[in-house]
């Protein structure tokens, strides 16, 4: 089984979010990047588990600049066999997805796994776009994935519930909580990662369908009004008359 796992970087979840250049660019000063948690904890680990039981190869791919080699090495340390970095700035989901799809087309993967969404842009766009570009079925937000020969059985979240579905390979799946458990790389993995192959590929030319023009920060809350814990009638009255939410 040949599995391609799409990983992206995201700022460490405790990072302070700020913008520079007249609020047109994310301020990377002092920001620590991690692998997007869904990509690392669920997509990558499940791919490795499948490889461990059925054999095969796990390739990780990212679209990003050279600085992203750090997160790629981490994915290799966790256990991926090899890595591909498409050397481009992933500012638009369509652009990013087409880059990945082009690489996947010429390398015949059985399964393409992504995270549920990136925690910086939260678009949930890239996976479905890869699937459409490859003309493959797409199972979104899977919390369970089992392989039986050339079919996958998956559990996925749908509007208001859970669904168990079956789909034939090749397919694209986006991975959510429940799929697997986080793995911490060990020393041997970290050493081995240094010599695993990391291929850098030039991007294909693709138009940008969207552009982030600028960013704004939410207004700070005015100070919190403290209510006497003995007087819940007052809270209810405030929620009704002042906040007008009940």
């Amino acid at each position: 089984m040949k599995i391609l796992v799409c990983i992206s970087k995201s700022p460490d979840t405790t990072s302070k979010i700020a913008f520079v250049d007249q609020n047109t660019k994310f301020d990377e000063n002092g920001v620590q990047y991690i692998i997007n948690p869904y990509d690392e904890w669920y997509a990558l680990v499940r791919a490795l588990e499948i490889k461990e039981t059925l054999g095969g190869d796990v390739t990780v791919i990212t679209v990003g600049p050279i600085a992203d080699d750090a997160i790629i090495r981490k994915a290799l340390a966790i256990g991926a066999d090899d890595a591909v970095r498409i050397d481009a700035d992933p500012t638009d989901a369509y652009y990013t997805a087409v880059q990945i799809a082009e690489y996947a087309k010429s390398n015949n993967f059985d399964l393409v796994l992504t995270g549920k969404e990136t925690i910086n842009y939260n678009g949930s766009q890239v996976a479905g776009m890869i699937a459409e570009s490859l003309n493959m079925p797409f199972v979104s937000l899977a919390s369970k994935l089992d392989v039986n020969g050339s079919t996958l059985t998956l559990e996925r979240e749908i509007v208001g519930g859970l669904q168990v579905v079956e789909v034939s390979l090749p397919a694209v799946v986006s991975c959510a909580k429940g799929m697997a458990e986080q793995r911490i790389p060990n020393m041997r993995g970290i050493m081995a990662a240094r010599t695993k192959p990391l291929q850098v590929v030039a991007p294909v030319s693709v138009e940008l369908l969207t552009t982030y023009v600028n960013y704004t920060m939410p207004n700070a809350k005015s100070s919190c009004k403290m209510i006497d814990p003995m007087n819940m009638d007052e809270l209810v009255a405030l929620l009704h008359n002042e906040a007008k939410v009940i």
Binding site: L141, I158, L209
Partner: peptide, 23 residues
């Protein structure tokens, strides 16, 4: 922007070459 849209809108974006604004 629900679970159906998260699966379908990106596909439609590629098919129609139409930019997608999610959320």
């Amino acid at each position: 922007h629900d679970l159906t849209a998260k699966a379908v809108a990106p596909r439609l974006s590629v098919r129609l070459k139409a930019g997608l604004i999610s959320g």
